[in-house]
């Protein structure tokens, strides 16, 4: 058996699987998005842009997603950065790994159970009851955009911390010493050295969190109580309740396209930012 045939044999199961379970299904979604709704709930083959023309009907879902996803990403960044900074630069090296693992582990546990925990905490008998006890009355937290935001930050904070930690950990600590030896104040060292060098980590973290948030369903479903809904919630409604496959497919395709465009633009911006910084450093 030549090496060539062996490689083909090794790739065959994975290749077939990707073909049947990824390429075919995604193509079906794409094709159906140009179809028409069948009275029985399926799709009548057609070539029409009717479904896409109808997209504004779900405008609120897109608007909520495109507002809360960036806001959630930025909030997670603001909270994650100091933590990553502490872990990478200030923490005792002996404890570093264990502390990092403690941040990441929650990400790999059930997001369902973790969001459920917040129903518990934000619900009537949780934090509002505590606030009531200290004299602040009538606070309603659950089923508000705030609750969804808290859920988002809680769910995705670990994913933001990790890449930032990696980029700060790689940073040559002698640069920081050199900067302070040359008389720079700590703040200036941070702004001119630490922050710029951690941009790749920030970029990766933001992208990961943003991508996942675009397709989020559980957090708004559990903490938004039907009032704050994302595209994901619209999709569940279209496919599992009203069984409008053609329109649902158009919404799904739009979601993926919007995601791809955002990520591409974002990558361009980041690489331009990186390029201009190099220009500065050459000067």
């Amino acid at each position: 058996m030549t090496q060539r045939t062996r490689n083909w044999l090794l790739l065959a199961p994975a290749g077939t699987w990707f073909l049947v379970m990824l390429i075919v299904p995604l193509s079906v979604v794409f094709i159906f998005s140009f179809g028409e709704r069948a009275p029985s709930g399926g799709v009548v083959p057609a070539f029409t842009f009717e479904q896409y023309a109808n997209l504004p009907a779900r405008w609120t879902a897109f608007k909520n997603t495109m507002t809360l996803a960036p806001v959630g990403t930025l909030s997670a960044l603001v909270i994650a950065y100091p933590l990553a900074y502490f872990l990478a630069i200030k923490a005792n090296p002996k404890w570093k790994t264990i502390l990092l693992v403690l941040v990441i582990v929650p990400f790999w546990t059930s997001i369902l159970i973790r969001s459920y925990a917040w129903i518990f905490l934000l619900g009537g008998r949780g934090i509002p009851a505590l606030l009531d006890f200290v004299g602040i009355e009538g606070v309603r937290l659950i089923n508000t955009p705030f609750a969804v935001l808290v859920g988002i930050i809680y769910g995705y904070l670990p994913l933001m911390v990790f890449p930032i930690f990696v980029s700060l950990d790689k940073l040559d600590k002698r640069l920081l010493e050199a900067s302070s030896d040359l008389g720079a104040k700590p703040w200036r060292t941070f702004v001119q050295i630490t922050l710029p060098l951690s941009i790749p980590g920030i970029a990766t973290g933001c992208m990961l969190v943003f991508i996942l948030l675009m397709g989020e369903y559980l957090i708004p479903a559990l903490l938004g109580g039907g009032k704050v809904f994302f595209v994901g919630n619209a999709l569940v409604d279209l496919f599992l309740q009203s069984r409008n496959w053609a329109y649902g497919s158009a919404v799904a395709v739009t979601l993926v396209v919007v995601m791809l465009i955002t990520v591409t633009v974002y990558m361009r911006l980041i690489s331009r930012l990186g390029a201009s910084r190099e220009d500065v450093s050459i000067m």
């Binding site: 379970m21 990824l22 075919v24 299904p25 995604l26 193509s27 079906v28 979604v29 159906f32 397709g215 999709l235 496919f239 496959w245 649902g248 497919s249 799904a252 979601l255 993926v256």
Partner: peptide, 9 residues
Amino acid sequence: VIGIATLIG
């Protein structure tokens, strides 16, 4: 989207 695609596919 993977879930939806698998379902209708």
